[in-house]
Structures are given as structure tokens and as C-alpha cells.
Amino acid sequence: MTKRIIDHPVLGTIENERTVTFTFDGKTYEGYERDTIASALLANDVRTIRRHEATGNPRSIYCNIGHCFECRCTVNDVSNIRACLTLIEENMVVKSGDVQPDPLNPNNEGPLPRTYEEYAERKAGDTDENA
């Protein structure tokens, strides 16, 4: 479902936009060439950009102009990128932020490995999959 405002009585009609393909949490989406990650996702009706690091609550854009950092996500393996300021690029890999382990709450260890062994194990698993 697209949520584009194609025709506008004062700003005119959008025409002949080149599309760009990117992935968000493993799923493929299309946006326009001048889209930010935030606008491309919203145009695809995707609102949740990250989960709150401690509570896991869903979060989306708030200010849309770079001030609030609510829209942080991981782009091509670089974390804490603001989705509202970053233009999409062909084959860009975007991931939502995850719940992080909480040292004060033993029930909330998050998805990160706890020991080096665990890390190495998972890493080996990853490579096997990719091979």
C-alpha cells in the first residue's frame, strides 16, 4: 500500500521518480530516489523503526528533522543512524534497533552474546549459513 501524495493543488504532481530498492529487517522495499529511510518506510506503511533498548516498546519518527534521535537504526552495519536524515540507496541494508542487555535486570539479556565463546559460536554459525 502506498501512502504517497502524488497530486497536490499547490505543489503540483510528482512524476517520473526513479525508484530505489533497499531492505529493512530482511524485507525488501521500494522508495523514491530522494526518499529518506523514514519517508520510504512510511510510504510502505512501516511505522516502527526501532524497539526501545530497555523496554522493547515500538518507536518511530518524532521530529523528522534530526533533532530527537527517536529514529535511530543500523545502516549497512553502522549503528545509531538517523532514518529521517539518511537518503535511501540501492541495496542499502537497514535494521531496526534491538532491545539491549540490561546489567541491572537479569531477565533482560537481549540478543547479544554474553561471553566470547558464545560470540565465536554464533559468528561461526553465521559464516556457515552464508557459505
Binding site: 504517497r4 501524495i5 512510511l42 511505522r47 515500538p58 518511530s60 518524532y62 521530529c63 523528522n64
Partner: peptide, 23 residues
């Protein structure tokens, strides 16, 4: 106010007029 779909009024302005996506 942290629920997805809540945004500042300026965010809606930019989404609508600059990115041309309905909020």
C-alpha cells in the same frame, strides 16, 4: 506519546510537503 504515529507538527509538515508521504 512514544507510540509510532505520534509526531511533532513539524514532522508532519516535512513528511507531507517535502517527502510527499501521507502521515
Amino acid at each position: 506519546w512514544t507510540l509510532p504515529g505520534v509526531m511533532s507538527i513539524g514532522a508532519a509538515q516535512v513528511m507531507t510537503n517535502v517527502h510527499r508521504v501521507s502521515v
